[in-house]
């Protein structure tokens, strides 16, 4: 488990550096969701919209969107492929993105079309810790993260 400040990122997952989307390689496909850092940055998620099962998605393109505090942002696919499953529970309870990032808060499962190529630039394993530390430090240096004691994220 990689950890920086209050953010926990399991290092067995793969991460999109910019979007803070996680990907877990499973037998049936690639499960994806928003990591702890991304969810904290957005704030309390009020709504999630996801593309339907069967829709083809391209790596780096939106497979859905989320809204939090009048902020709307795209959810970008970590790999290309076809959406094989959509988390109905999170559609009904989008707050799961804030409290259970890696289990009940998953968003979609994608049947990948180019897995090896697509995961090459995702962060994984021992690279997760230094990447997370750098990312958090960068935002702190810019004054973009509140002090730890003021935070409400878990």
């Amino acid at each position: 488990m990689a950890q920086a400040k209050e953010f926990n990122l399991p290092d067995d997952l793969y991460y999109d550096r910019k979007e803070h989307i996680w990907a877990r390689l499973e037998q049936d496909g690639v499960r994806a969701g928003v990591d702890a850092f991304g969810a904290c940055a957005a704030g309390t998620v009020a709504y999630v919209k996801l593309s339907p099962v069967g829709r083809h998605v391209q790596k780096g393109r939106a497979f859905g969107s989320m809204e939090a505090g009048k902020y709307v942002g795209p959810l970008k696919a970590p790999v290309s492929g076809t959406i094989a499953a959509v988390n109905q529970e999170v559609l009904g309870n989008p707050g799961l993105l804030n409290v259970d990032h890696y289990e009940r808060g998953w968003l979609v499962v994608i049947s990948p079309s180019n897995l090896r190529g697509d995961i090459a630039d995702l962060v994984h394993g021992p690279d997760v810790q230094p990447w997370l530390e750098t990312d958090v430090a960068e935002y702190e240096q810019k004054g973009m993260l509140k002090k730890e004691e003021e935070r409400q994220c878990t």
């Binding site: 940055a41 957005a42 004054g143 973009m144 509140k146």
Partner: peptide, 10 residues
């Protein structure tokens, strides 16, 4: 060029 957190962006 903007804060990462929505709260800070506002």
């Amino acid at each position: 060029n903007l804060p990462r957190r929505v709260e800070e962006m506002y």
